[in-house]
Design a protein around this nucleic acid. Structure first.
Lengths: 240, 240
DNA sequence: CGACGCATTGATTGGATTCAACTAAGGTGG
DNA sequence: CCACCTTAGTTGAATCCAATCAATGCGTCG
């Protein structure tokens, strides 16, 4: 199934009926490839299509006048690119593919039909955007109040947990196709400092990271130094 | 009208019918006072009531083991405290009243009725949470990639624009009842450095700030140094 | 009036940036 | 198949922005 990650993610929140699952499945019929380093969506766009990551990594980012860039989210399979763009009317940031990506294109009017007729499904999608918001809050805390060492540790914990949620972690080992520059733009650091900090994390036997594969050597210890509490990811099945 | 700010804010997005406005109006019947420095909601709560700020200022925040605190949002009249808590099931952060606040308590089941029967209203509320998310993204950029001077300038621009949206700015003058420590916890700086930076902003004739009143002396110049682009606040009426 | 919260100022320290050079790996084309 | 080029990662030295530590001013409220 092409959008398995998506259904798996929504499934954490909602008990969707077979009919609703069929509807979602039908949405993701039009899947296209995007090359690495290509913008998927640009700031200012008024989305007529919704985009859902089926495979690969992407990032939301904003560019500043001086040339600096800040990444505000990493997108992995099952994540929507532009649900908020659809509802707010205009994208206030851009999204770039970090690796080659498979992306499902969903016609905007399909989405409108869906949300006007299926309140439970609407809530499930809403839930998804609120999870994004929750992650964003953790980023503010991370960048605002943690030093580089804790900060990178925390980001790695997040990505480890999220990848696990969609079934892409085995033995605490996962694909992490991010350059040090991209990690820097996400954590508000420089690539040089990210490099030195990763070396410390490796020297302290917390992680292994090379050729785009991350192994978390000691999950508990990494979470401890990061001050990572996974509850903000709302992974446990909600009582309803 | 007690919840004028709220309706004004939603009105930016949605053309609500008189019936829908009446529904919202009825929701906000139970208004209570909360004293300054009191927590309105605590991390871990499972909201049975929704809270809407009617008057006063509040802040979302997370506390870190070391005692540090990061504020992730300022809440002003018309803002919901815990919509996401309702949908996600559990609050992943706390909310504190920064001034005495009037807060509308909304029974949770009322909200469920509302969202299951009124898709247009649901979308309007969803829109509100997506606006929060958009502001959060700008905070990540702000803290991640701007220096203290630009950073505080940007925050002041945001608060100026948001207060204007709900009609609480006159002649670029507004109530800003935040201590320098609270500004520090929001910007990822220390109170000492906030103090020095505010002095620079005053010396450069960009702002006046004393005894909880902010006057923006030169909006254009302040926005320029901050790199502030208000479009992320989605203030302009959406084409629908 | 005394105490407390908040703002202010000075001196010092330190984490992260900047600038620059260099290595390693991978891809391409002659 | 190797010379060439590009991209990503690594290392060192100097610099700087913001943090830290500490003391003082000041207003206001019980």
């Amino acid at each position: 199934m092409s959008n398995g990650a998506f259904l798996r993610k929504l499934g954490v929140f909602a008990d969707l009926s077979d009919a609703e699952i069929a509807l979602l499945d039908e949405l993701t019929g039009d899947v296209r490839m995007t090359g690495a380093k290509r913008d998927i969506i640009r700031e200012g766009d008024r989305p007529e299509q919704l985009h859902l990551i089926v495979s690969g990594w992407a990032a939301r980012y904003k560019s500043l006048p001086g040339g600096a860039r800040q990444i505000t989210a990493f997108l992995i399979p099952g994540d929507f690119c532009d649900l908020h763009g659809k509802i707010l009317g205009r994208m206030d940031h851009s999204i770039v593919a970090l690796t080659p990506c498979k992306i499902a294109w969903i016609p905007s009017d399909r989405f409108d039909q869906l949300t006007s007729g299926h309140p439970e499904l609407t809530r499930a999608l809403w839930w998804g955007t609120l999870l994004d918001e929750s992650i964003l809050r953790s980023w503010v805390v991370n960048i605002g109040r943690r030093d580089a060492y804790e900060r990178i540790a925390h980001l790695l914990c997040e990505l480890h947990a999220r990848m696990k949620m969609i079934g892409l972690v085995e033995n605490d080992r996962l694909d992490l196709p991010l350059t040090q520059e991209e990690l820097a733009d996400a954590t508000g650091l420089t690539a040089v400092h990210v490099n030195r900090t990763l070396q410390r994390l490796r020297a302290d036997d917390l992680i292994q990271l090379s050729s785009r594969m991350l192994t978390v050597e000691d999950v508990n210890e990494l979470r401890k130094v990061a001050g990572f509490d996974p509850s903000y990811l709302h992974i446990e099945r909600r009582v309803r």
